[in-house]
Computed example of a mutant assay.
Amino acid sequence: MKFTTDEYLTPYLQSFNRVKNVAHFHGCHAIPKIKNIKKITDGLMDLFFPGRDDRDQDCTLEESVKRNLDYVVEKLSKVIDLAYTFDGKTQEESEELTTIALIDFCTKLPALRRLLKKDAEAGFAGDPAAKNLHEVILCYPAIRALAIHRVAHELFKIGVPLIPRMLNEVMHSDTGIDIHPGAEIGESFFIDHGTGVVIGETTIIGNNVKLYQGVTLGALSFPKDGCGLLLRGAKRHPTIGNNVTIYANATILGDIKIGDYSIIGSSAWIKTDIEPYSRVLIPEPEIIISHRKPKSN
């Protein structure tokens, strides 16, 4: 007897919400696709750092920037429009809001690129393993993560739905660095190595800050209202001052402040404010070395 799915279809369909303007995944609206978000992240890297694309070899800087800018704007326009429609806006509202978002993006591009140049320079200045600035830009995952985050953050600030989070999740998948698009990051920021870094939504990071792999800037708890519902958007992540260094696997939780020029040692666990010019270390673990007898043949 050939197996068919007919008898299983109706029970499964009953699990769907068929309310109009709620059932976005059920044919009511198209949705932005991750594969198109991925194309945008690649296009942004070519736009911020021309010369990465083979087509750049036989053209001027102006031609390269124009081609890459047009490409990114075209792709962004489509996914932002879909995101607004998915969020319940009319087609007319979506088109108007998409235009506003694209104007905001293009207006802020010069400032974003200057920030990224400072991020790359901070990476080169702080890593003796880097041979030159080009190596940092082409090879270091932090530069890709920050390039995408800084764009996603600007879209997040003006209320573009869904796309900022999708951009950062593609970046997370590519680099192992997880930054919520709501996080505010100052200039000359760098993440060395990067794998396992988590930066939460309401984190604020000052200028000239350096993180190492495995650092978590997270929430200690989630504030709730009188009905027990989560207060979304409430400040619940750390504020990191200027000129702070946070070493590998340190965990900093809650709406606390790490003062300027502080150094947070590896694997520290912090839930309280730290005064400026502090050094926070945990005791070195006791090392036990035992000698083993060689196995006899």
Results as ranks from 00 to 15, higher is better:
K39A: 14
L231H: 03
P50N: 08
Y8E: 09
P276N: 13
G43S: 10
G196A: 01
N242M: 05
G194M: 03
V280C: 15
G233K: 02
W269A: 03
E184P: 00
A130M: 14
K2Q: 15
I163D: 01
A111L: 08
N297I: 12
P32H: 10
I177E: 06
V79A: 00
E63L: 08
I270S: 03
L211F: 15
D174S: 09
H149M: 12
D260I: 14
R18K: 07
Y247W: 01
A30W: 00
E96Q: 14
P161I: 11
P223Y: 07
P294W: 09
I158Y: 07
F124C: 05
K66S: 11
I289M: 02
V160H: 02
S262F: 02
K117G: 04
A142Y: 05
I256H: 01
I256S: 01
V65F: 00
Y261V: 00
N21C: 10
R52V: 04
V136E: 07
L162S: 11
E92Y: 13
A120R: 02
L138E: 06
A152V: 06
A234H: 11
G126F: 00
V198G: 01
D119V: 01
L229N: 15
I163R: 06
A130V: 10
Q57M: 02
F48H: 13
K117T: 11
P128W: 06
L44E: 10
K66P: 00
A152S: 11
R292Y: 10
S278V: 09
K235A: 03
L47N: 04
G265I: 13
I252A: 04
N297T: 12
G123T: 03
F16Y: 06
T272K: 15
T10F: 05
K20F: 13
C106F: 05
T251S: 12
F86K: 09
Y140Q: 04
E7I: 13
V22N: 09
